[in-house]
Simulated scan of single mutants.
Amino acid sequence: MSTVARPRVWESVVPTTSRRGHFWVPGERVTGADGAVRAKGPMFVAWEAPAADTDRPPVVLVHGGGGQGTDWLGTPDGRPGWAAGFVAAGYPTFVVDRPGHGRSPAHPDVTGTPGAQFDYGTGEALFFPGRPDHTRWPLDPEDEAATDRWIAPLGSLPVDLAASQRMDADRLAALLDELGPAVVVTHSAGGPCGWLLADRRPELIRALVAIEPIGPAFATFPGIGTLDWGLTAAPLTYDPPRASADEARAADPTTLRVPALADLPVALLTGGASVFADFADDVVRWLVTAGAAVERVHLPDHGVTGNGHALTYETNSDDTLAVVLRWIEETT
């Protein structure tokens, strides 16, 4: 009996020439009840840059909730991901695994109690086509094997959302201290990392692209947590100052100014068939009040249609990235 050999995974990949590597952003040393000293929440960083130097700033890609850095490296149907697209456009590109996700180690004694493992039902509700205008999902929802491969990298979310966001922002701030001014791109539940990073290092963010960030302000996301401080669960620096999350929530929304966000170029990117687009204008209004130079970038307004929440790796991901590259080029 003869069989047809499947192509090996590397045989369909176009050869490229680039520089690449990886390193770690260390965490703090913490002493446990047993007296042992351990590292708290180090962050893994993979990077790739064009073979020749360019004048483009570094780009830092921050994944969403339950995901990991591999979200940016390839698509579920085997095409190159946004990371490769940024490198091809001349940007040194840095892909992080947020502490406790992917290759960044997690243990409840140092990174906090993990929540439930990401489940199929949640993934299908967030990403699978749920309306007729969502036409760009790359997999057949009835293909169980493909769905298994797609959900494999999705892990647990932290129970303490605020502590997790503080750790994310601290590690990203240390990364920018090494890289210098950079463009930061976040997705979904990674969105608060961008606002908190700007609060810590406003002078080191050239521009911020928030892809379908969680919101609106002070919202509760089932299975994730509550944005107690506005668009973040961790504290933000307001002017006038707010001493607590309760004080921030009780304040007149028009007074919630964040000095670190003043005049920061922000693109808030949404897909035309995503439920996250339904509250994006509320997020924009909060950012305008905070002081950011924010632009709502709705893909259908740029001729790119059919996208849901996973617009970074749907079938027209090259087109969605092209919109972002144009915005970055015009902004920086």
Rank of each mutant, 00 (worst) to 15 (best):
M1N: 12
S2A: 08
T3I: 13
A5I: 09
W10K: 10
V14L: 08
V14W: 06
S18E: 13
S18C: 06
F23L: 12
F23Y: 13
W24I: 13
V25L: 03
T31L: 07
A36E: 13
A36R: 04
G41P: 00
P42I: 12
W47V: 04
E48D: 13
A49N: 01
P50I: 05
A51N: 10
A52Q: 11
P58L: 12
V62T: 14
V62S: 06
H63A: 09
G64I: 00
G65T: 13
G65V: 09
Q68D: 15
G69I: 00
T70M: 01
D71T: 03
W72E: 11
T75G: 13
P76T: 13
A83W: 04
A83Q: 03
V87Y: 09
V87A: 13
A88W: 07
A89N: 01
T93A: 11
V95A: 07
V96S: 07
R98E: 12
H101S: 15
G102S: 08
R103Y: 10
S104R: 00
P108G: 14
T111H: 04
T113L: 12
A116R: 11
G123F: 06
E124C: 12
L126V: 15
F128Q: 14
D133I: 11
T135Q: 03
T135Y: 02
D140K: 01
A145F: 09
A146H: 02
A146S: 10
T147H: 10
D148Y: 07
P158K: 01
P158N: 10
D160A: 07
L161Q: 11
A162L: 06
S164W: 11
R166H: 15
D170R: 03
R171C: 09
R171A: 14
L172D: 05
A173N: 05
L175M: 09
E178M: 09
P181N: 08
C193S: 15
G194L: 00
G194D: 06
L197Q: 02
I205C: 07
L208Q: 05
V209F: 07
T220S: 14
T220Q: 10
F221D: 14
I224C: 02
I224M: 02
T226W: 04
L227R: 03
W229Q: 12
L231V: 09
A233N: 01
A233V: 06
A234C: 13
D239S: 12
A243G: 12
S244R: 00
A245C: 03
D246A: 15
A248L: 01
D252A: 10
D252G: 11
L256K: 02
R257S: 14
V258F: 11
P259S: 15
A260F: 02
G271F: 06
G272Q: 00
G272F: 02
S274R: 00
V275N: 10
F279S: 13
W286T: 05
V288K: 03
V294P: 05
R296T: 04
V297W: 01
P300W: 12
D301M: 02
G306E: 02
H309F: 10
A310G: 13
S317E: 11
S317T: 10
D318I: 08
D319C: 06
L321Q: 08
L321M: 04
V324C: 03
T332Q: 09
T332S: 13
